[in-house]
Design a protein around this nucleic acid. Structure first.
Lengths: 187, 187
DNA sequence: GGTCGACATGAACGATCGTTCAATGTATGT
DNA sequence: ACATACATTGAACGATCGTTCATGTCGACC
């Protein structure tokens, strides 16, 4: 009789990610989730609540992938490269831009709760990246003169830009070249 | 008796740039512009029409700055560097993200007219950047092995990312470092 | 098998959305 | 002064927004 919460969150995420917070109406969600308003509000409290649940699920899945790649890679620096290369948008993704980044760009302080959570989740990724680069430096993969945090910042900036670029140019035909250009800066 | 069209566009741009297309209501615009619906619709046709007029004015101002810097710089490559350095967001800007990029990220094909114009305007900047880099290569400022178009793409990606990063981190305290990291990749 | 608690339902709420238009006001030409 | 042309006004439109709640429905327990 009850809905599958995980399934609901995934469907809602797809819609929110594609259209953004404001352009996604509760009516849209009702249709896609096949749920009536009362059920949605009982389960998530509000549109904001549902959105935050989606953001967290989205981030958790992404980070699970990141940690898995970090563990599977032969070295920290190779892990970083693998993670970046995995970031070319798939055809099934509803948008070229990371949902967290898109949220940070779309929303203002009027929706502070969502915004703060999005920023927090972005830093989770940033910290993971920084950590890997620190390890790479310790192991001599990264020159001693480089600052891991600064490089992590550079890569994160570039990653965010790639999403925007993909969004602007429809396809992602040149994304391999784009990634390699950034990785070349690591030496 | 008539309103100042340029002034109206600038005020509307400020609001649209800050809040985005969807979160900006005609009511908000009426208040800020001190105009009644009839006047706005007589002058711009629709909310979309007003938005496009704002986008075009925004782009035209930006490009005027770009061309001015290109003319004033001692060489093409120095022009590129100056242009990039000028891109750290000012405190008066309503958002850390370029309005054109923000629009491309926010809107979907439902607003194809706006989206196409935003993409077109983005390419205007890209073409100007490519042109400068071609000149730099011709004059030997850029290594012969480098592809101007590819470098322009790299820089554009990075610029878009910087806007997102600034938006996520409130201030722009580290933007000088960020820029220099990208410029270092030009050698 | 009767009772109760928990959840799903969907009609309805007031607010606000983008937009229209008849009425009003103002400037200009004669 | 008067007529004409046109920009401005602001009330009002139907649609849709996010949200609420009285009602319906089902399963579990004594």
């Amino acid at each position: 009789m009850k809905y599958d919460r995980q399934d609901v969150i995934e469907k809602a995420t797809h819609l929110f990610w594609e259209k953004g917070f404001h352009a996604t109406s509760m009516r849209n969600l009702q249709d896609v989730l096949d749920m009536r308003p009362g059920s949605i509000y009982a389960g998530f409290g509000s549109k904001e609540g549902l959105f935050i649940a989606c953001l967290q699920d989205y981030s958790q899945k992404n980070m699970a992938g990141v940690y898995a790649m970090a563990k599977a890679a032969p070295s920290p620096l190779e892990a970083v490269k693998t993670i970046l290369r995995s970031n070319k948008g798939s055809a099934s993704a509803p948008s070229g831009v990371c949902m967290i980044v898109k949220t940070i760009i779309e929303l203002t302080e009027k929706h502070a709760e969502i915004l703060d959570e999005a920023k927090r989740l972005m830093n989770v990724f940033f910290d993971a990246l920084t950590d890997l680069l620190k390890q790479a430096k310790d192991q001599g993969e990264l020159k001693a003169s480089k600052d891991p945090k600064r490089i992590a910042r550079f890569l994160q900036v570039y990653l965010m830009g790639m999403g925007s670029y993909a969004q602007a140019n429809g396809g992602c035909s040149t994304s391999e070249e784009l990634i390699e250009d950034a990785l070349a800066c690591l030496d």
